[in-house]
Design a protein around this nucleic acid. Sequence first.
RNA 1: CGGGGCGUGGCGCAACGGUAGCGCACGUGCUUUGGGAGUACGAGGUUGCGGGUUCGAAUCCCGCCGCCCCGACCA
Length: 486
Amino acid sequence: MSKSGFVTSIRRQSEDFPGWYNDVVRKAELADHSPVRGCMIIRPYGYAIWESMRDELDRHIRRTGHQNVYFPLFVPRSLLEKEAEHVEGFDPQVAWVTRAGGKDLDDWLAIRPTSEALIAEVVKDWIQSYRDLPLLMNLWNNVVRWELRTRLFLRTAEFLWQEAHTFHATEQEATDEVATGLEAYRAVCEEWLAIPVIKGRKTENEKFPGAVYSHSIEALMRDGKALQGGTSHMLGQNFARAAGIEFLDRDNQRKNPYGTSWGFTTRMVGATIMTHGDDSGLVLPPNVAPHQVVIVPIFRSDDDRLAVAGAIERVEAELAGVATMSGPLRVTVDRREETPGSKFNHWELRGVPFRLEIGPRDVAAGQGVLVRRVDRLKETIALDALAAELPRRLAGYQALLFQRALDFRAANSHEADDLAGFERILDDGGGFIHAPWCGDGACEKRINEQTGATIRVIPFDAPDEAGRCLVDGRPSERRVLFARAY
RNA sequence: CGGGGCGUGGCGCAACGGUAGCGCACGUGCUUUGGGAGUACGAGGUUGCGGGUUCGAAUCCCGCCGCCCCGACCA
């Protein structure tokens, strides 16, 4: 028994955050390790959470005019090497196929770490005129990056993601597209996953290999570490030039198109866990929760059992097809032969937003007891009011989790004006640190080596503010966002 | 890849040269059911892999593999 009087089978978040995270992932049956180091088996419950965010992001991607396509898993070595900065950035992480069909291969095949190089090569035949542009494509696939250190969902050797690849006639169009991608990620994070994010630009050191610049969104986890939630890259004409993509523009000039790419991965399942979870396990926002309401029958005698079962069947029928913000209401009745207490813990560990207890006393009064996961707030509610009330409660709960995450971020965001203050904040629980920086990559590296923190983004909404660089005291125009990060 | 931990039924652990055991979980029956039920019986193991030492190895030695934590690479 824990101090709170509630049983728990996982390590406490406040005492051992990494241990807590592993326990949640394993005991809530989200994922398992595979026989291959660093790879992950995503179990049904974990996959359902991924599918929910995937489907929501897919709706955004389609709504903004992109089409889904598929490109193959293998990339010839010669192609990957065309963009110099790109290959340099990815080479150490690439897994190669060196033998196939019983023979050693002359041209090794990379298992895609990302698809820019392959796509650029292929679409050069598709793009002949400005009329062929923009080309707006998206892939849902898996990629492999041989990471040295892996963690379930957060960093695995193989992961699932979406990678959008677009080509444009003008730089301005590509600039707008980078913003379109980033906005889709913000919307999914904030409105679907209830994870508040900060939009900004990555520093030169942190940008995507081969990009002109990279934008990303940054979120704060409950252990005070930051996590990047999606990146959108301006590729400029880099990949187009390397692949020799040219089109004839309105002015009868041959030009290279401008490219963008942007990606969102299964790590966001991990972000959802670490943004909302608590000592009892997962806490899921209703929009992503595979079960939004779980009904737990309670009874002693056979007569009670029948009466309760009858009432629950009527509730189920009434709730069938009730609309919520994220589609038809997802209700599950837990009819397993377990004690109620066991079921309460089972579903709390899995983060189900609401539990509805229906027992003999409730049936007699035409009501149920509705319990909110995040704070176990209980209220009695008339059974015939459920169809009208549940969608409202779910919407309120979604908003509550977002506000709670916002409050947490506010309470864990700090300003530092000198290195001593900066390190004090890191020693005292971490969080987001807004601090002045001169813009020099050398200072950025030095602070990373000294403190472990990195510049997450240069926030778009950071106001102009004259200051002095944390490291070397040179003038700084505004604060940038530092944190220790995943 | 460096530092530190650790690999024994599904999970958590014990046994640390001498017959592999306990708790939870699992199966069946009965009694239970508003915060992880009780009871009886039962099933489940070539102790991560490969060598070696020994009459005898989960235990000692060597090598490998994997997992976790911290760091460097990174979504």
